[in-house]
Amino acid sequence: MNTTIHLDPLPRRRVLRGLASGLAALGLAGCGFALRKAPTFAFQTIRLQGNEGTAVARELREALQANGLQVLTTATAAPTQPAQVVFTVVTDQRERAVVGQTAAGQVRELQLRTRFVFRLRTATEKTLIDETELLLERDISFTETAVLSKDAEEAMLYRDMQGDIVQQVLRRLAAVKSL
Score class of each variant (00 low, 15 high):
Gly53His: 05
Thr88Pro: 04
Leu23Tyr: 13
Thr80Tyr: 08
Val71Leu: 01
Ala24Ser: 15
Gln49Ile: 08
Thr73Ile: 04
Arg58Thr: 08
Thr91Tyr: 01
Thr40Tyr: 12
Gln65Lys: 08
Pro82Lys: 03
Glu59Pro: 02
Leu26Asn: 08
Thr91Trp: 00
Cys31Ile: 15
Thr54Arg: 02
Thr80His: 06
Thr76Val: 00
Gln84Phe: 07
Pro82Glu: 07
Val89Cys: 05
Gly53Leu: 04
Asn51Val: 14
Ala66Ile: 05
Ala24Ile: 15
Pro39Ala: 10
Ala63His: 02
Arg61Gly: 04
Pro79Gln: 01
Ile46Tyr: 00
Val85Met: 02
Arg61His: 08
Leu35Thr: 14
Phe41Lys: 13
Leu69Trp: 00
Thr40Leu: 12
Leu23Pro: 12
Thr80Ile: 09
Gly30His: 06
Leu23Lys: 13
Leu23Gln: 14
Ala78Lys: 09
Gly32Met: 09
Thr54Pro: 03
Ala29Tyr: 11
Thr40Pro: 10
Pro79Phe: 00
Leu72Thr: 03
Cys31Thr: 14
Thr45Val: 04
Phe87Thr: 04
Phe43Asn: 10
Phe87Asp: 06
Glu59Thr: 00
Asn67Gln: 09
Leu48Val: 01
Gln70Asp: 12
Gly27Glu: 14
Phe87Trp: 06
Glu62Lys: 11
Ala55Lys: 03
Ala42Lys: 07
Gln65Trp: 04
Thr76Trp: 03
Asn67Lys: 01
Val89His: 02
Val85Tyr: 00
Ala29Val: 13
Glu62Tyr: 12
Leu60Ala: 06
Gly32Pro: 10
Pro79Asp: 00
